[in-house]
Design a binder for these strands. Structure first.
Length: 461
DNA sequence: GCATGATCATGC
DNA sequence: GCATGATCATGC
């Protein structure tokens, strides 16, 4: 514990003195050289700059000042914009006690009410010791975020109360996540209302939320539209409930009438997303609003055929074959996608030729158990790329041996390109760009559970 | 009707 | 011009 700094300003002033000093000059005990020492840079700053030993107390690092210290990286993108490099991992969630308290008395709030953020720019072609702090500032949650964070905390704790700590997932919540934390993925803890062991998890400010903070306060270029204008709306309803209730009056409306009403080009592939945005009072795209960006919510449009089943499987960004070979599942983009993304499914149902009606929406994130199932598809895909994809030409099509939708309950691999000539490098040649798809039947399961498929014929006679 | 390869339309 | 989200098209 550290009592040297009595006030927040004391801490801040000291922190600002670290700006510009390469970490190698702060590293008094050779921490940066140590292999796989993830907290390395943070510890170097605590020890070498502030002069106290790293600890894992329940109290904030600077107890008297009531400030928690966090050193965190950001990166500059190709277009010059800034992104947080990672989520900000906070204290470990004590499943056994956290549920007993109110938000104000919670372990989360006690420790992280006020955070001294020290930022450094990360770059791949620079050694750790050459990075240095570029910004230091005190972060306290603005009210518009705090109402959401409070709801997030409630959601995490209520899952523990329901004996479901083992099913916690970062995608459950919007800004404050419950991310896995441990020496390895198998660090387990007991939980109060179930005999099942649960993965050790820590509170975290999601990467998308961190990016939002940086753009909003530091790099000053956040001009995203907001959906929620009055924080009071979030006191008695979750964000998802609020969105759903605002859209509800439009359920059952034909797509063409909505396109007319909002003057939207129906040929556009994002027309349905734009309809929803306009209903919510947003001029641009839903995915570009502050809340959607900061919570990493991905809107996806689903068309149901007349028999009530989704018409198509769901595509994602094309992956790069060589990049897949360089990743482990644990740090793969795909795992990251399904762990941290919340999806908003926007559902339209075809009622006759050329006409659809707005059926409704549902928010969803992939459960942990299903993410483990996706891992199999990912591993198989990597194996196939490594061993060499087998291509077969027939009917003027190029068939491959990537996992098919019939091979796995959840996902498969399929082309995702402009055309067949739109290729990506393989270790031994090139082939049409591919991406992971969620199976049509899996999407159907999700919608059934959400009550969005009223008349399930087809596969479910 | 389904699975899977192929391609479209838009915005940035 | 390309990445992205979405949809078309063909053979079984």
């Amino acid at each position: 514990m550290n009592f040297t700094y009595a006030t927040k300003v004391d801490v801040l002033l000291k922190a600002q003195k670290a700006i510009g000093i390469p970490f190698k000059y702060l590293d008094k005990s050779g921490r940066l050289g140590r292999h796989r020492n993830k907290g390395g840079i943070g510890q170097v700053v605590e020890e070498g700059h502030f002069g106290y030993s790293p600890n894992s107390d329940a109290e904030p690092d600077f107890k008297a000042a009531g400030v928690e210290l966090k050193v965190t990286p950001y990166r500059r993108n190709f277009d010059g914009s800034i992104s947080a490099k990672e989520r900000l991992v906070l204290n470990i969630i004590d499943y056994m006690t956290e549920y007993e308290s109110t938000f104000e008395e919670s372990g989360f709030w006690k420790k992280n009410k006020s955070i001294l953020m020290m930022l450094y720019e990360y770059s791949v072609n620079k050694a750790k010791g050459d990075f240095s702090i570029s910004h230091a500032f005190l972060y306290e949650y603005p009210l518009k975020d705090l109402v959401i964070i409070k709801n997030d905390w409630e959601r995490i704790v209520s899952k523990v109360r329901a004996g479901l700590a083992d099913e916690l997932s970062e995608g459950d919540t919007l800004y404050l996540g419950a991310c896995t934390k441990g020496t390895n993925a198998t660090s387990l803890r007991t939980q109060p209302f179930s005999d099942k062991m649960a993965k050790q998890r820590a509170y975290s400010l999601k990467q998308s939320y961190m990016t939002g903070i940086l753009r909003r306060y530091i790099f000053g270029n956040n001009c995203d539209e907001r959906i929620i204008h009055d924080v009071k709306d979030l006191r008695n309803a979750s964000f998802e409930e609020l969105i759903s209730s605002r859209l509800r009056p439009y359920f059952g409306r034909t797509r063409s009438s909505l396109l007319d009403e909002f003057k939207i080009n129906g040929k556009s592939k994002d027309a349905s997303e734009r309809i929803i945005a306009r209903i919510l009072g947003v001029t641009g795209k839903l995915s570009q609003t502050e809340e959607f960006r900061m919570a990493n919510i991905l809107p996806k449009t689903i068309r149901l055929s007349q028999n009530g089943a989704p018409e198509e499987s769901m595509s994602f960004k094309a992956f790069k074959f060589i990049e897949l070979l360089c990743q482990h599942w644990e740090d793969s983009d795909l795992k990251e996608l399904f762990e941290s993304t919340k999806f908003m499914f926007i559902v339209f149902r075809i009622i006759e030729d050329g006409e659809q009606v707005f059926e409704g929406i549902t928010f969803w994130n992939m459960p942990q158990s299903d993410i483990s199932e996706v891992e199999k598809v990912w591993l198989k895909t990597v194996e196939i790329i490594r061993e060499g994809v087998r291509l077969r030409l027939a009917d003027n099509r190029v068939y491959n041996n990537f996992p098919k939708s019939s091979d796995n309950r959840i996902a498969h691999v399929r082309p995702h390109a402009r055309d067949r000539e739109d290729v990506d490098e393989l270790p031994d040649g090139t082939m049409t760009k591919q991406c992971f798809w969620l199976n049509r039947t899996y999407v159907m399961e999700i919608l059934k559970e959400a009550g969005l498929i009223r008349n399930p014929k087809g596969l479910y006679k």
